[in-house]
Measured scan of single mutants.
Amino acid sequence: MGFKLLSKLLVYLTASIMAIASPLAFSVDSSGEYPTVSEIPVGEVRLYQIADGVWSHIATQSFDGAVYPSNGLIVRDGDELLLIDTAWGAKNTAALLAEIEKQIGLPVTRAVSTHFHDDRVGGVDVLRAAGVATYASPSTRRLAEVEGNEIPTHSLEGLSSSGDAVRFGPVELFYPGAAHSTDNLIVYVPSASVLYGGCAIYELSRTSAGNVADADLAEWPTSIERIQQHYPEAQFVIPGHGLPGGLDLLKHTTNVVKAHTNRSVVE
């Protein structure tokens, strides 16, 4: 069995187990497998329904001669939608809004960016022009300005110390501490036991640490421990890039980060 097929099978099995364990909360999309990078042309966006009122959005972007996937989250909030992270750029984010209108038909009224990198804030200006209120932590807003990236308009308070959590509509926002970046936030959907790890969490097929220019490698494993301790009931975990899975993604990420750190020390 090929690795790609095995990865998709694991996603399907995880979703099936969740649907059985929580039949009222989960209505997993039966329309197909989780979209992969090879299936999404740059400039297009796919939506994948995880649970009743919960979707991931998947886009792709060219970077350094390669094409990478990027995940975000959409959560229903009454007759409105909360968006977590842009679709990595203005063109993708405009396509995301169009796809949401086509498939869901509810307005996106608020959006949260989970850290300051372009795959999370690139497209904020498109959201703002569409009347979406954009939010991020003060740290993310400051770092985005320093980096020359787009800056969300509103500040999220109460997320300055490791372990801080605040309720934001249908989700809980959690600051686990520094990891992929010093400002990275985690998003949890309690009604569906869905954990969105953003770039602080890796997919299972990833074996290298990737972009760690703004990471705190020493603190990252401790931050992941905080996530595990705060959300032990999480059933569906979405990484910032690639295929979702279960809580095993947290341990896998820790292993990859520690291996990278150990290699760096040896070198």
Rank of each mutant, 00 (worst) to 15 (best):
G123Q: 05
Y175F: 11
R141A: 07
Y135W: 11
L97K: 00
S113Q: 05
F116T: 00
V126E: 08
E44V: 10
S193L: 15
L10T: 15
V112N: 00
G198E: 04
S161K: 13
E225G: 12
L106E: 03
N255R: 12
A111M: 10
T109K: 14
D79L: 09
L173K: 00
E80M: 07
I74K: 03
D52M: 08
V194R: 01
A234I: 09
P221N: 08
K102N: 12
T134V: 05
R128L: 09
Y202G: 04
A25T: 13
G197A: 11
A94H: 12
L243E: 15
S27E: 09
V121A: 04
P176R: 01
L195W: 01
R128N: 14
L81W: 01
S56T: 15
W220F: 05
G246D: 13
Y231D: 02
T253N: 02
L6I: 09
I227E: 02
L9P: 14
D29S: 10
G169L: 04
M18W: 09
N262P: 11
E99F: 08
A209I: 08
Y196I: 03
G148E: 07
R76S: 12
S113C: 07
H180A: 01
K91P: 13
T153N: 09
H115A: 01
D125I: 05
E147N: 15
S223I: 04
G242L: 04
V257M: 07
A259T: 11
H117P: 00
T207P: 10
P152N: 01
P138G: 09
A95F: 15
N71A: 05
A234R: 02
G169C: 06
N255M: 10
G246A: 08
S191K: 12
K91L: 14
S113D: 04
F116D: 05
E145D: 12
Q228G: 10
L185D: 01
L47E: 02
D52Q: 10
L97I: 06
V67D: 15
L24P: 12
S56K: 06
A21C: 15
Q49S: 10
G65K: 10
E225P: 02
F174G: 01
S208P: 07
P221C: 06
P107F: 03
T93E: 00
A144S: 10
T207N: 15
G2D: 14
L173S: 00
S56Q: 15
N71M: 06
H252D: 03
N211H: 11
V45G: 04
V37S: 15
T254L: 14
C199M: 03
G122E: 10
S22N: 11
S113F: 07
Q61R: 14
L195A: 00
Q228L: 13
H241S: 01
A218M: 11
I238M: 07
A66R: 09
R167Q: 13
H117E: 00
V28D: 10
T253S: 06
D216C: 04
A136Q: 02
E33P: 09
F116W: 15
V67I: 09
D79R: 10
G122M: 13
V166W: 05
G169R: 04
